[in-house]
Design a binder for these strands. Structure first.
Length: 202
DNA sequence: AACACGCACAACCGCCTAGTG
DNA sequence: ACACTAGGCGGTTGTGCGTGT
């Protein structure tokens, strides 16, 4: 329960990393591996706390990190997984090779969250808004999610053993179906031309 | 050209949890 | 069983950059 004392130590550098610090960290880890993060800064000659080193390495310096814009597929995956897992960024990141939880979290907060709000989603609960038109894109997304998860079951079956997640998924799909049917029956004149739901797959 | 504003993202903070003695 | 620690995670903040006025 105790707080890691490394962050409380005074005299350790904070803020942006310099190229020289990056080089030191990369060089050390390439030579020795990271081992104990707490011990690493001293061994590598860095005036940083271990936590800072770990973060810098895992979020930025790691050689297998994929940088650049998120693809449509990645965006779709994030949306779908978030609707099931919520803000479990590290869990979501395991499905996106080369992407870090921090990167996904940032992408969500700066892009996807706004996008969902615009489309009539509540980004936190993934519940549709009360008015049906604004919720339609979400219903379609949920139906989509069902499709995607069915595919995932083939490829990543072992990753979906969490029964709660599976149950949530089933419930979400049920809800989507019910509400979508409700929409179909209640609507006579489809007038919502403001936006084409980007989540709609062919 | 100068300033204000908003956005994107790197980095930090503090809490939680698994592991160990 | 308990105390303690390191590492991991999610939320939040700070900063640099681009764009609009």
């Amino acid at each position: 329960m105790g707080r890691s004392p490394c962050c409380d130590e005074n005299g350790l550098k904070k803020g942006p990393w310099t190229p020289e610090e990056d080089q030191r960290l990369i060089h050390y880890i390439e030579q020795h591996g990271h081992g104990s993060w707490r011990a690493l800064p001293k061994l590598a000659g860095l005036n940083r706390c271990g936590k800072s080193c770990r973060l810098r390495w895992t979020n930025y310096l790691r050689p297998d990190i994929k940088r650049g814009k998120f693809s449509q597929e990645e965006e779709q995956t994030i949306l779908n997984l978030h609707s099931i897992l919520g803000n479990k960024w590290s869990a979501i990141a395991t499905h996106l090779p080369g992407r870090t939880d921090n990167e996904i979290k940032n992408f969500w907060n700066t892009h996807l969250k706004k996008k969902l709000i615009q489309m009539g989603f509540d980004p936190m609960t993934h519940r549709p808004r009360t008015d049906l038109f604004s919720s339609l894109p979400q219903l379609i997304a949920l139906a989509n999610l069902n499709k995607e998860l069915m595919m995932m079951d083939h490829h990543h079956h072992q990753q979906w053993e969490d029964h709660a997640a599976v149950r949530l998924q089933a419930e979400a799909v049920q809800l989507a179906k019910l509400q979508y049917l409700q929409y179909i029956f209640q609507t006579t004149t489809p007038t919502n031309t403001t936006s084409t739901p980007p989540l709609l797959n062919p």
